[in-house]
Design a protein around this nucleic acid. Structure first.
Lengths: 123, 123
DNA sequence: GCCACCTGTCAAAGATTCCTGACACATATC
DNA sequence: GATATGTGTCAGGAATCTTTGACAGGTGGC
């Protein structure tokens, strides 16, 4: 059977992926996780960076679907969060970009019909 | 003849490309230029954005090698700068990213032994 | 000269992102 | 209980990016 046709990522998706990967730290994180899955604290020590910071970067990567974290319980009962790299694949060409650009959800329009939590309306 | 082998972009290059494309405006600019080459002012009107801003975005894209601008002289003598999309192609996978991550020039650590162009050493 | 169009740059404001140092909460070991 | 390891979050400042308005040219046509 033939190969799957070139998947056309949505603008927002591609945007998240590109901005997530367009950062040196995040690139290194992916690289480190490629060698072997790891949990947050250990990874932080490995690439010398604060936990809060790493945590934030990992969230950005996970939100883009590039890595996946799972909260596991080690044999000794400690809860540990392991991260793995997702086998992603994106083709970056003018056509793909142009196509994606057409489906971008302009986030600037603060809301409109989008009902917020109905809480900060206090202002 | 066979296809060219998977090109391995350097970390800095990939970084510039990804961060350049990881912006809604810049994506739309590429999309607009895909339909037809155009000059700055016209493009600005086309996608409703200020010239100074467009100018800056175009520079970022050009610095990443995604578009190319040429200053041309129209028949009536007016100087106009046309921009074209460069036929780029990048493959985004964990392996590529990991490989690129290994060749990132950390711009924060002022230098070290890394031999630079031997020019800004002046300081 | 004056107007219309093009090019480019600058400074200052606005918005985001990035980063750090607490803090709170779990479990296992000493 | 005290210590060490793991988890996560928050507030605030630092650093960057984004955006705008004003300015300084250039050419051609009325």
């Amino acid at each position: 059977m033939p190969e799957a046709p070139p998947p056309a990522p949505t603008g927002d998706e591609l945007l998240k992926v590109l901005s997530a990967l367009g950062n040196p730290h995040r690139m290194r994180i992916v690289a480190a996780l490629m060698e072997s899955r790891n949990y947050v604290s250990a990874l932080a020590r490995l690439i010398g960076m604060g936990r809060p910071l790493l945590h934030m970067h990992l969230q950005r990567l996970e939100a883009a679907g590039l890595v996946a974290g799972t909260l596991e319980v080690a044999e000794d009962g400690k809860t540990v969060k392991y991260y793995d790299v997702t086998p992603f694949f994106y083709e970056l060409t003018p056509r793909v970009v142009a196509q994606a650009a057409a489906t971008i959800t302009d986030t600037t329009e603060t809301d409109r019909t989008a009902g917020r939590s109905a809480k900060e309306e206090a202002k």
